[in-house]
Amino acid sequence: MTVSQSIAGAPVREWSRIKYPQSLYRWGGIMLALMFLGYSIAYLNIPLERFIGMFGRVGTLITDRYYPPDIEYVLDKGYLATVLDTIRMAYLGALFGMLMALPLGWFGAYNVTPSRRFLYPVARFLTMGTRAVHETIWAILFVTILGFGMMAGVLALTMFCIGFAGKLFSEEVEGINMGPVEAIRATGASQLSVMVYGVFPQVRVAFTGIAIYTWDVAFRAATVVGFFGAGGMGWYLKRNVLQIETNRVAAILLSIIVLVLVSEGISAWARARVARAK
């Protein structure tokens, strides 16, 4: 928006929201981003005409093939048993992951870590590494090493939760009030006592919230680790995808959505309760 105003005797000046050097950087940045965009569309061979035609095709795909969902299939006993398995797998993965993330959250918090030189970078690297590798890759790796079954799934989810909860834990610990910590340090307490009596009471409520949230996220991940043979409902999904039983796939997806909604509701309720119990 430019506004010209003329006051008697004063030269006419243009008003603009962003002035010269900033506007140059801004336009330069936008141009660079657009160039990268165009280059990557060309590089990835993305057929734009197919993208435009996609909307109609997705519509017919849903109406012709995925609708109506085969609801009876997901009410089958065998399927419901795998749903229970998935929930248990998510629970175990989240529990073990969190037990391991607790020390990592302690070592990886810069303000209370026992050794800034050694343990801090190690803990940071471990949480970063376990989080950077996607849960499906963990699942595939554990399936290759340990064979098909729930154990691989539980371990994959454990790795995923270590990274996820470890990062949130250490961020929470870094935000604490250092007063009690210094008070306990001044009494000559050991590092562990400082953690137990100075840090932990301050973060217990937040940790519980994070724990519930981690379980929620682990459940979402647990629905697909079975895709690569690590147990749970993912295997049903894969089988039906491969057999192009699209009505059943739609039903399974619906069941996943319902379960995620329920777990989100439970997690929101539990977190609100924990926050109130503070």
Partner: peptide, 23 residues
């Protein structure tokens, strides 16, 4: 919908809709 369905499942859906490839 977007958050509850895993990216692998979305990718399978779109592979069925637009074919294999980066799109």
């Amino acid at each position: 919908l977007s958050r509850s369905i895993h990216e692998i499942v979305w990718a399978l859906f779109f592979v069925a809709a637009v074919g294999l490839g980066a799109l």
